[in-house]
């Protein structure tokens, strides 16, 4: 369990964000942590599940940051499924 910085992009937003996540966070939580800075602030909320995409490939929801072998400051995109 340790803080881990990622570059977060929420689908439709305008900026790349520095988002601290935890190495134990599954991708569902990572998506929520990125969305917190965007949804309802600049991008209207949608009642749809969110998924994490890394280099064009979806990462399974239950996979944690540690299990996904991310490097610090990897770029993660949050998209609606």
């Amino acid at each position: 369990m340790a803080l881990f910085p990622v570059q977060g992009i929420f689908e439709g937003d305008f900026v790349v964000l520095l988002v601290p996540v935890d190495t134990d966070d599954p991708m569902t939580v990572v998506a929520e942590k990125i969305a917190h800075h965007v949804v309802g602030r600049r991008v209207a909320a949608q009642d749809r599940p969110m998924r994490i995409r890394r280099q064009g490939e979806f990462v399974a929801d239950e996979v944690t940051v540690a299990e996904a072998n991310l490097a610090p400051l990897d770029v993660l995109e949050v998209v609606y499924a």
Binding site: V16, L17, L18, P20, H37, G40, R41
Partner: peptide, 10 residues
């Protein structure tokens, strides 16, 4: 408050 940031941009 929802228009103000809680983290940084890269």
């Amino acid at each position: 408050e929802l228009t103000l940031p809680e983290t940084f941009p890269m």
